Amino acid sequence: NKFNKELQWATWEILNLPNLNEEQVKAFIDSLKDDPSQSANLLAEAKKLNDAQA
């Protein structure tokens, strides 16, 4: 289903952001699991944090 694909993509993207630490990655992944419908928003937040920590 649509959410599953978005969830998988967002998870992969977050796991490959170079500037997030392990705790941050885990928090984002946990949030994705809690509410897959928010995957696009969570991914945007993760990318923002990644850029801020570059």
Rank of each mutant, 00 (worst) to 15 (best):
N1T: 04
N1S: 03
K2M: 14
K2T: 06
K2W: 15
K2H: 15
F3A: 14
F3Y: 10
F3N: 13
F3S: 12
F3G: 13
F3V: 14
F3R: 10
F3P: 15
F3T: 14
N4M: 08
N4I: 12
N4L: 12
K5E: 15
K5L: 03
K5S: 09
K5P: 14
E6Y: 14
E6K: 04
E6P: 04
L7M: 09
L7W: 09
Q8W: 12
W9N: 05
W9R: 10
W9E: 11
W9P: 02
W9S: 06
A10M: 07
A10L: 08
A10W: 07
A10F: 15
T11W: 05
T11V: 09
W12E: 06
W12Q: 06
W12V: 04
W12D: 05
E13I: 14
E13S: 10
E13A: 12
E13V: 15
E13T: 14
E13Y: 15
E13L: 12
E13G: 05
I14K: 01
I14P: 01
I14L: 12
I14R: 00
I14H: 01
I14G: 01
I14A: 01
I14F: 03
L15T: 10
L15I: 07
L15E: 12
L15G: 05
L15A: 05
L15V: 05
L15D: 03
L15M: 13
N16H: 13
N16K: 13
N16R: 13
N16D: 04
N16V: 05
N16W: 04
N16A: 10
L17F: 05
L17R: 00
L17Q: 04
P18Q: 08
P18L: 09
P18Y: 10
P18W: 08
P18S: 09
P18A: 09
N19R: 04
N19V: 01
N19Q: 05
N19G: 04
L20M: 02
L20S: 00
L20W: 00
N21D: 08
N21F: 10
N21M: 11
N21S: 13
N21L: 11
E22F: 12
E22K: 12
E22Y: 11
E22W: 12
E22L: 10
E22R: 10
E23N: 10
E23G: 09
E23D: 11
E23F: 14
E23K: 10
E23Y: 13
Q24G: 01
Q24T: 03
Q24F: 02
Q24E: 03
Q24K: 01
Q24N: 02
Q24V: 04
Q24A: 02
V25R: 14
V25L: 07
V25P: 00
K26Y: 11
K26V: 07
K26M: 12
A27P: 02
A27W: 15
A27R: 13
A27K: 09
A27E: 08
A27H: 12
F28A: 02
F28Y: 06
F28K: 01
F28T: 01
F28H: 01
I29K: 03
I29N: 02
I29S: 03
I29Q: 03
I29V: 10
I29R: 03
D30E: 11
D30T: 14
D30H: 14
D30P: 00
S31T: 11
S31I: 07
S31W: 10
S31H: 10
S31Q: 13
L32A: 04
L32M: 13
L32G: 01
L32W: 02
L32H: 01
L32E: 00
K33D: 05
K33V: 10
K33R: 10
K33W: 15
K33I: 13
K33F: 15
D34L: 14
D34R: 13
D34T: 11
D35F: 07
D35W: 07
P36Q: 03
P36H: 03
P36F: 08
P36E: 03
P36V: 06
P36G: 03
P36L: 08
P36Y: 04
S37A: 12
Q38R: 12
Q38M: 09
Q38V: 05
S39H: 14
S39P: 03
S39F: 15
A40F: 15
A40W: 15
A40Y: 14
A40E: 07
A40T: 08
N41M: 14
N41F: 15
N41Y: 15
L42H: 03
L42T: 10
L42R: 06
L42D: 00
L42G: 01
L43M: 06
L43N: 01
L43T: 04
L43K: 02
L43V: 14
L43F: 06
A44P: 02
A44Y: 14
A44E: 05
E45S: 11
E45N: 10
E45K: 14
A46G: 02
A46Y: 03
A46Q: 00
A46S: 02
A46N: 00
A46V: 02
K47H: 08
K47Y: 15
K47W: 10
K47E: 04
K47N: 06
K48F: 11
K48Q: 08
K48H: 08
L49F: 04
L49G: 01
L49E: 03
L49A: 05
L49S: 02
N50D: 05
N50T: 01
D51K: 10
D51N: 11
D51Y: 12
D51Q: 13
D51H: 11
D51T: 09
A52Y: 11
A52I: 11
A52P: 02
A52W: 09
Q53L: 09
Q53I: 07
Q53R: 04
Q53W: 06
Q53M: 08
A54K: 06
A54S: 09
